[in-house]
Amino acid sequence: MEVARYWRTTRQRYQLVGEVCPNCSGKIFPPRDVCPTCEKEAKTPFAFSGVGEVYSYSTVYQAAAGYEKATPYTVAMIRLAEGPLVSAQLTDIDDKDVAIGMPVEMVTRVLREDGDRGMLVYGYKFRPVMV
């Protein structure tokens, strides 16, 4: 991954910062500056709480280049408490059975390695909420 591209998206990837629409109050992730619901300008930053539940998931056995070392790993679509769906890996699931509806929370982890000398890309993953 290119360094400039990495820094462009750090706020989203480290802190799950999206936007809130001043017109309809809809919460937007990822940020896109135009509200997908009412199509009005929406540039007000909004930090998501990072809690949500599993909408769907899959364990990936055939990874893309850059992700082979972690194979197999489990990806999920998470319904955030504030509304939007976000896609991310699940982590710290050990032997737990993942299920649709499972409560999860955001954590920061290494997403990918660009070879032995390349950069480590950090970003959000989600783990089961500790009870």
């Binding site: 990936v60 893309a64 896609s87 991310a88 890996q89 990918r112 970003g123």
Partner: peptide, 8 residues
């Protein structure tokens, strides 16, 4: 937002 997360 998808491939970066390891989604294929």
């Amino acid at each position: 937002y998808e491939a970066m997360q390891g989604l294929t």
